[in-house]
């Protein structure tokens, strides 16, 4: 299995590490690599868009040609997971975006960027998952908020209390929080199973 973590800006190495551990747990052979150029998308099985600054990631992905190609592959069924800024990148509608920002539109959700406030409002809290009984520690850093699901194809996979904080739409996963900042690889495993 070949998994690429979009490496233009943000917490790239943390996702590479987490995806490697998840593969090991699933007993899958393969590689996880730093994805910077469009040529590296050839023969790829899954893509992760990390947390970072969505304005920066959007600008650099458009500039180096990753933007159009990832959108095309995602529309064609390639598993793509986005966390925090990555979720913003995947979304169809974004409140609070800058005029230059572009989005992949692979996930039928409306997002409010930086909805939780500034860094002093960042928080950790246990979440409930759709596919496992054990809580998952959610790490929310200047997080975006899923304010509306725009189609029935979108299914919740993580909740904070009764609020949806993680969703999937067939091959696409979007999370408001950062599983890559914990040692818990369950969400990475769940994602990689889509590529098996």
């Amino acid at each position: 299995m070949r998994v690429g973590v979009i490496g233009v800006q943000g917490a790239v190495s943390e996702h590479i590490e987490a995806a490697r551990k998840a593969m090991e747990k699933l007993g899958v052979n393969g590689e996880v690599f730093w994805l910077k150029k469009r040529e590296q998308l050839k023969g790829i099985d899954a893509v992760i868009i990390p947390g970072g600054e969505s304005t920066t990631i959007s600008r650099l992905m458009a500039k180096n040609g990753l933007f159009d190609k990832v959108r095309e592959l995602g529309e064609g069924g390639l598993p793509v997971m986005g966390t925090c800024a990555g979720l913003i990148m995947l979304s169809k509608e974004v409140i609070g975006a800058t005029p230059e920002q572009r989005f992949l539109g692979l996930l039928d959700v409306r997002i409010n960027r930086n909805a939780y406030g500034r860094q002093v409002d960042s928080f950790e809290a246990p979440l409930r998952l759709s596919f496992d009984d054990e809580p998952f520690q959610g790490v929310f850093i200047r997080a975006p908020r899923i304010v509306e699901l725009l189609s029935r194809k979108v299914k919740p996979i993580a909740w904070l209390g009764d609020r949806i904080v993680g969703v999937e739409q067939n091959n696409i996963i979007g999370l408001e929080f950062h599983p890559e900042l914990t040692d818990d690889t369950r969400l990475h495993e769940y994602f990689l199973m889509k590529a098996l």
């Binding site: 943000g10 970072g52 960042s122 928080f123 950790e124 200047r142 950062h178």
Partner: peptide, 22 residues
């Protein structure tokens, strides 16, 4: 699943810095 929010943890502070990498 009670919502026990923790703020200002070491993980949140170092995590913020990780998001500006690159």
């Amino acid at each position: 699943f009670e919502i026990i929010e923790m703020k200002g943890t070491e993980r949140l502070k170092r995590g913020f810095a990780k998001m500006v990498k690159g």
